[in-house]
Simulated assay, not measured.
Amino acid sequence: MNEAWVNIGWANNAVRLDLKKVQGASGLGVMQLRFHVEASCRDEAAAQKPLWFEGGLFAEGLGTSSGYVRRLVVEDSPVTLHSLAATTNFVLVADIDHRQLQVIEEHRTSGMKFRLQLTGTAMTDGNLERIGVGNVECELTQSDWAAVLEQMQYRRLLLIELDAPDAHRSAEYKLALDFYRNAEKQYLKQEWRLTVEALRQSLAALVGKAVDEEDEAADVEAAFKTLRREANKTKIGYSPRAEQVRRALKFMCDLGAHPETAETTKAEAYSTLLMVGGLLHGWQS
């Protein structure tokens, strides 16, 4: 049911709230769900009284992940109905982060269902009084929800979060993580070439080698040919395959080690940082 009624003092059903549409918006590091509501005055008790609404947004139909999402606020307060039968429109806004949307997308099976749990206050004779507001249920079809995600520019940002790995697997692994943390610091300083150089050191340290080993393209090519021959005879698991990924990434990072080569860009430093981070996360010493 996309509507709720507001009780003011002795007047039940004084204001009708009707949810008209739901939109998404993209901001700096956060996204918004925007619920457009039409309020209509159904009793004189509500006329000329400024109304303030707030509440909580709840997601439903997500199994054990259902529940509270975020606080709802009115974009422009207060809401005022100037006469009986008058209508006005306002927007309830909830800020959503990428992790919350990721959880929703992992658990929803079709469309999306929300519940808006609202409370409010009204100004009466110079005093604020609590008013009773019901819940507003909002159900979006799969296509409507896809449109909202598009408006929020979800999936246009590649967001990767990895748990910090255990540094005590081996001495080599600890040193590799130290170099990787240095790469992160260089990235924050916008030192793109030094970021890739630190990643180069991390990949070499991971197997106890010096950074100047495996410099030649022939070394990488020979290692891949050897693994391909072995794969024709027996099953090759993840660990030896991961070693070839390490070799290839090390070869890629070698470009960033030489000042005379083309300048390393932010995109190259960032993508390499992600790839090496993923490799370290799943590395088995």
Rank of each mutant, 00 (worst) to 15 (best):
M1A: 07
E3N: 07
V6M: 02
N7T: 15
N13F: 15
V15F: 05
L17V: 10
K21L: 07
Q23S: 13
S26R: 08
G27Y: 02
V30W: 01
V30T: 09
L33H: 02
F35V: 02
F35R: 04
F35W: 03
F35C: 03
V37L: 09
D43L: 05
E44Y: 10
E44I: 12
A47M: 09
F53T: 02
G55M: 10
G56S: 09
G56Q: 08
E60N: 14
G63V: 06
S66L: 09
V69R: 02
L72P: 01
L72G: 02
L72Q: 01
V73S: 10
E75P: 03
S77L: 12
L81A: 05
L81C: 03
L81H: 02
L84D: 06
T88H: 03
F90W: 04
F90R: 03
V93S: 04
A94T: 06
D95M: 10
I96L: 12
D97Q: 02
H98D: 06
L101T: 02
E105T: 07
E106Q: 12
R108S: 03
T109D: 11
S110R: 00
R115Q: 14
L116G: 00
Q117H: 08
Q117C: 10
A122F: 05
A122R: 10
T124P: 08
D125F: 01
N127A: 15
N127Y: 15
E129N: 13
R130W: 08
V133P: 00
N135M: 08
E137D: 13
C138P: 06
T141N: 05
Q142C: 14
Q142V: 04
S143G: 04
D144A: 06
A147V: 05
A147I: 06
E150Q: 11
M152E: 00
R155W: 05
R156C: 12
L157T: 15
D163E: 07
A167V: 11
A171W: 03
E172D: 12
Y173D: 03
K174G: 15
D178F: 09
F179E: 01
Y180C: 01
N182L: 14
K185Q: 10
K185F: 09
Q186A: 14
Q186V: 09
Q186T: 08
E191W: 05
W192I: 04
L194N: 12
T195G: 11
A198H: 05
L199S: 02
S202V: 10
A204K: 00
L206M: 06
L206R: 02
V207T: 07
K209V: 07
D212R: 07
E213D: 07
E216M: 14
A218I: 05
D219V: 05
D219G: 15
V220C: 09
V220P: 03
V220Y: 03
E221N: 11
K225L: 13
T226K: 12
L227C: 04
E230V: 12
N232K: 10
K233F: 09
T234W: 04
K235S: 07
G237Y: 04
E243F: 09
V245T: 09
V245C: 10
V245Q: 02
R247A: 09
A248D: 00
F251K: 08
C253K: 01
A257F: 04
A257V: 10
E260W: 13
A262Y: 06
A262P: 08
Y270N: 09
L273E: 01
G278I: 06
H281L: 13
